[in-house]
Design a binder for these strands. Sequence first.
DNA 1: ACGATCCGGAGACAATGTCTCCACTTATCT
DNA 2: AGATAAGTGGAGACATTGTCTCCGGATCGT
Lengths: 230, 230
Amino acid sequence: MEIRPLRADARQNRTRLLDAARDVFVELGSRAPLDEVARRAGTGIGTLYRHFPDRQALQRAVVLDALQRTVDEARAALDQERDPFRALVRYMHTVLDIRIAAVIPALFNDVDLEEEQLRRVRYEGSAVLDDLVAAAHRAGTLRKDVTSADIGLLTVRLSRPLPGTFLREQNDELAHRHLDLLVEGLRPRSGRPVAISGPAMSMRDLQRLSVTDREAAPSTARKARGRSNK
Amino acid sequence: MEIRPLRADARQNRTRLLDAARDVFVELGSRAPLDEVARRAGTGIGTLYRHFPDRQALQRAVVLDALQRTVDEARAALDQERDPFRALVRYMHTVLDIRIAAVIPALFNDVDLEEEQLRRVRYEGSAVLDDLVAAAHRAGTLRKDVTSADIGLLTVRLSRPLPGTFLREQNDELAHRHLDLLVEGLRPRSGRPVAISGPAMSMRDLQRLSVTDREAAPSTARKARGRSNK
DNA sequence: ACGATCCGGAGACAATGTCTCCACTTATCT
DNA sequence: AGATAAGTGGAGACATTGTCTCCGGATCGT
């Protein structure tokens, strides 16, 4: 590892490449052509390869960067907001902005999340989200049956850009709009509590689960689900 | 055009290929290897190409099939459910099951949605969703500021499989769980109405928007494939 | 039983993506 | 300003991946 500081222009290029890579991976998937990344960053492909020896190194750097920023923001929300529910909502909006919840999914199969450094930041991320949720639970402003994994997964669903040729700005607006809508469903209901179905997991459950199962079930048979509208 | 009915085994293979293709496109994206589709369908690659002359034909068939089933189910929901809100919720759950809202996004850039037959079914789909939403609005059981485009886009967000090595069944359960959660946010609030941000669009707005954006690039209706742009 | 119909998958071909190499440019220091 | 180390860009050799044809053989329907 080089410890010598980068030249000013080199540092800027590195940052630009990271930003461009994040967008490209989110929009085009983990196997998007790196030419495109270089193009958006306004550099040559050679420069990209100088900073990141191969595709995987770039992907790793992108994830680490986004994760770190998310953790920082989560802590800020927890510290600065008086109302825990507000802190949680602020956290979710920020996550949309950082696009972390879109990046990780996109790169999930290509980046080794168990690698030491990533593992550590991921752990911090889970912990702070657990704290946010727990605080809101204690305050009684968040439905008791909503778990931290729900929050995490919901931000994933909201983060991913909608297909079609939406402009990016429009996409972002819609994501925040839908988050607003969702947030209303997170509050406890005064009247009858309508039960929600499915597995209630914590962030820890979620991580354990992702790591553990590594076999593919080739069962393609589809069964009709007997569904009553609850 | 062949009108002669297919041999029984051929018909079954065709159906299997369609189902497999839908899953593969959703999971692996529109450019997923067709070998994988054949493998999951339990047929050879040659069989795939006999039924669908090229990738685009397969994609188109997948979308048409899913769309048609969705429209049918939407009509059934509208007819059979007494409570309009229940009808809407049932519709959304069904959409998750059919995975239409995951298929269309995945194939958005590869299938020409303006092609006559698709256009017609899509139009029907929008119309019936508009009806569902309008009915719920009239009944006062759906927030007035929630539009049909919101419903459509939200099902898209919920439909797409979460990354990681979730088993498919688990993925489905989570999608329905999160839909349950979301639904609570769709109901009108008795107390203060918390405003939601962002553009409020109808399905029509949505379609118009997607189409106009497309004009920028030359629409490849049925041309040679080899394109090199950038 | 016996055409007609359909299947399977090896492999030639085409498209796409990876990454190196090095002549050239730019930042930084004195 | 001059010297020089640091950084850049992109053409192109190479590798990987996906497309689609072809035809001997299996299977269906009558």
